[in-house]
């Protein structure tokens, strides 16, 4: 029999749009794999430690301790936070960690799963979704801890609090988008990815986490105003704490930009990812 009598699939370059669609389709076929990887990552984290969940709470609690000390010492005036300062800082820090960990987890997706990518022809999107799933599972416990703390410090929750999870999606997308760009750069341009890590650490101080959104910060106020994270983080926080809809409009504008950024990042990641595996040897 000859070759032409059969239908054949070619492993050659196809149009970019077709390629991205094929990637999306094959990701759906691997949904059980994504579930398994996520489950394994979450469970593995706690298998070797006796303190388990404690480590997830440590970072926000330490942030609270440091800033409460600075605040009580009169070194720092956070402005009107609308809630007792410790609860405000704890909650805001949790939201920052939600963003930062989404970025960090996704940025490590390729290097973290390098062995499996080198030995199985799995779609690259699966490892991004696993990292998102892992991150969301990790976030649930610190978030739940925040609720009694807010109530303990006299904060109130209302019907807008129910919208809080929805309002978090753009913040997640922002972290994931930056993470997808950096996941590629981490393999092929390490300097860029290191620079990005450092920039994000600096941006933390330009985002209203330890101070109120409208705090008077002198010349920094303008930078805070132009920082998209001010709204991506501030609006969900306001919803949760029933502090009004002041940030809604800028939040909507920024969300629109984040959605565009996400599609650009997905495209960048999908097109670049097949080049990454063979470079993993050099890393």
């Amino acid at each position: 029999m000859v070759l032409e009598q059969y239908k054949y699939t070619k492993f050659i370059q196809v149009r970019i749009r077709t390629y991205i669609c094929l990637q999306m389709k094959s990701i759906l076929e691997y949904k059980f794999f994504i579930y398994q990887l996520t489950r394994v990552s979450v469970l593995a984290r706690f298998k070797k430690t006796r303190l388990g969940l404690f480590w997830m709470l440590l970072s926000p609690v330490l942030t609270v301790v440091v800033w409460v000390i600075l605040h009580n010492a009169g070194i720092f005036n956070p402005g009107d936070t609308g809630l007792a300062y410790p609860a405000y800082v704890l909650f805001s820090s949790t939201l920052w960690i939600f963003f930062f960990e989404a970025y960090k987890s996704v940025s490590e997706s390729v290097t973290y799963h390098s062995k499996i990518l080198l030995s199985h022809p799995i779609p690259y999107g699966t490892v991004v979704l696993e990292r998102i799933g892992f991150h969301l599972m990790n976030f649930i416990v610190p978030l739940l801890v925040n609720i009694p703390v807010i109530l303990l410090y006299g904060g109130k929750l209302g019907w807008t609090s129910l919208l809080f999870p929805l309002a978090l999606i753009p913040l997640l997308l922002m972290g994931v988008s930056l993470g997808m760009f950096v996941a590629v750069l981490k393999v092929v341009a390490v300097d860029f990815s290191n620079a990005m890590d450092e920039i994000i650490k600096v941006v933390k101080y330009l985002t209203p986490i330890v101070y109120a959104t409208h705090a008077d910060l002198g010349f920094l106020s303008q930078i805070v105003k132009w920082n998209p994270l001010t709204y991506l983080l501030g609006f969900p926080r306001d919803l949760m704490l029933c502090q009004g809809w002041d940030l809604f409009l800028p939040f909507l504008y920024v969300t629109f930009l984040v959605v565009i950024l996400f599609f650009l990042a997905w495209r960048f990641y999908s097109i670049s990812s097949p080049l990454l595996v063979e470079r993993l040897f050099g890393n």
């Binding site: 054949y8 070619k10 050659i12 990518l117 030995s119 199985h120 022809p121 063979e278």
Partner: peptide, 11 residues
């Protein structure tokens, strides 16, 4: 798993 620089694989 890898992409070729030249040629094609037909399955």
């Amino acid at each position: 798993i890898f992409q070729a620089d030249q040629g094609e694989v037909i399955i």
